[in-house]
């Protein structure tokens, strides 16, 4: 049986489709017996769907550095 920490990591990987088949199997069995992780897993999936639904975009780090530099010059 896997620990809750490990289950949480797998659950997070699953949100990005990076969990292997074996890991997913382990997770399913863990969720069957652990209510806390089951709740976490549910909320985690909700967060993923919210992030997909919202038009999220952000500036690339490179442009931020440039922006910071220009701003720094004016301070």
């Amino acid at each position: 049986m896997i620990s809750c920490e490990k289950a949480a990591i797998i659950c997070n990987k699953k949100q990005y489709n990076e969990a292997t088949f074996y890991e997913k199997l382990q997770l399913i069995f863990h969720l069957l017996i652990c209510k806390t992780c089951a709740k976490f897993s549910k909320e985690n999936a909700k967060l993923t769907s919210l992030c997909k639904k919202a038009p999220l975009c952000c500036l690339p780090e490179k442009e931020k550095v440039e922006m910071k530099k220009e701003l720094q010059e004016k301070i």
């Binding site: 999220l56 975009c57 952000c58 931020k64 701003l71 720094q72």
Partner: peptide, 19 residues
Amino acid sequence: HPETWVDQYADYLFNYAVA
């Protein structure tokens, strides 16, 4: 605190503007 602006607000403002 202008020196923290880019880190703290750049993405927020960018989202607002892009919308």
